[in-house]
């Protein structure tokens, strides 16, 4: 667990309440917590105070109850994975050497490093036979970002800090990387602090979302579904924007929805029961008569129409 206790950061020579003003927050172990908010609201500053790339002006950050100031900053950073938007792979080192950075700093023996590097490259879907010896310049943007993630995972840290890691990547590759991160998280179960200014990304990835406004003021700290269903302040409503309820549909699984029974012959348009209400809405809009059959393999589980969606979303 990471705890912010009345943490503030004032940059020297800057007036006003500060980049981060009196932030108190608890980040539970094994969860993805997303910091989301408008540009300049203090997301990056808050994140970098966790691994002491930035030192707080006042307040305390502790990890599992221990004040991070008690730890050597370099040793602390080696124990926390760190991924940034610009990635910052070492251009003069191969993919394998990049991934081996922290194990190397921690003086692992060569055998162990090799094994670990291969394992990680497999994990992120870049077969070592093809990729280990390449230089970062010989990778696509998405591949580089995945190597950045592998590098951060190298010594199996409990905590990962990710600052807009997918910000510079096209929407399709970005969605794939998001899915991969979720899949990876099923396996590795890290405490992940993830910064983004994209609310859709926040809602998709976060077990909890901290919506921040200027000075890293916490407007609401809640699971995504709750954030979308019950915005706590006008600032949250404003940030979520017009499409708040449509966004929320993506969080509701069809399995949890009360469907209408099939009446006569099932509608031609179908949606798989593994999908969400958002998929169902898309199908309803496509359907000639506005009704859609929810199918579970060959079986029709029920029917969805506009009314079902509206009732389920409330």
């Amino acid at each position: 667990m990471i705890t912010f206790d009345h943490v503030s950061k004032h940059y020297a020579g800057h007036d006003g309440p500060g980049a981060v003003h009196d932030l108190s927050l608890e980040i539970p172990s094994g969860e993805i917590v997303v910091f989301v908010g408008p540009s300049g609201c203090g997301k990056t500053t808050s994140l970098k105070m966790i691994n002491r790339l930035i030192e707080p002006t006042s307040g305390t950050i502790s990890i599992d109850g221990e004040d991070t100031r008690k730890r050597d900053p370099n040793e602390l950073r080696r124990s926390i994975g760190y991924v940034i938007q610009a990635i910052g792979l070492f251009p003069h080192r191969t993919v394998a050497e990049n991934v081996a950075t922290v194990p190397h700093l921690d003086h692992w023996d060569k055998q162990r490093i090799d094994t670990r590097v291969n394992e990680l490259l497999e994990l992120i879907g870049l077969p070592p036979r093809d990729y280990a010896k390449r230089l970062p310049a010989e990778l696509s943007g998405g591949e580089r970002q995945r190597v950045g993630v592998a590098r951060a995972l190298a010594v199996d840290p409990n905590i990962m800090l990710m600052d807009e890691p997918f910000g510079a990547i096209d929407p399709i590759a970005r969605e794939r990387l998001q899915n991969e991160l979720l899949r990876l998280q099923q396996v590795v179960r890290k405490t992940i602090v993830f910064v983004t200014h994209d609310i859709d990304e926040a809602v998709k990835l976060g077990d909890r979302v901290a919506l921040l406004s200027a000075g890293a003021k916490v407007e609401q700290y809640a699971p995504p579904a709750e954030l979308l269903a019950r915005p706590a302040t006008p600032a949250v409503t404003a940030f979520l924007g017009e499409a708040r309820l449509v966004r929320r549909l993506a969080l509701i699984h069809l399995r949890d929805v009360r469907l209408q029974p099939v009446n006569g012959s099932a509608p031609k348009t179908t949606v798989a029961i593994g999908g969400t209400l958002r998929d169902a809405l898309d199908a309803v809009l496509r359907s000639p008569d506005g009704t859609v059959a929810v199918v579970d393999g060959d079986r029709v589980a029920g029917v969805v129409d506009g009314t079902v969606i509206r009732l389920a979303s409330q």
Binding site: N51, I84, A86, I87, G88, P91, V102, G148
Partner: peptide
């Protein structure tokens, strides 16, 4: 040198000298 490269080096726990 690209500042992002230095930031990632320091962020992974390299000392200034390393």
């Amino acid at each position: 040198v690209d500042p992002a490269v230095i930031e990632s080096a320091r962020g992974m726990g390299m000392t200034r000298l390393q």
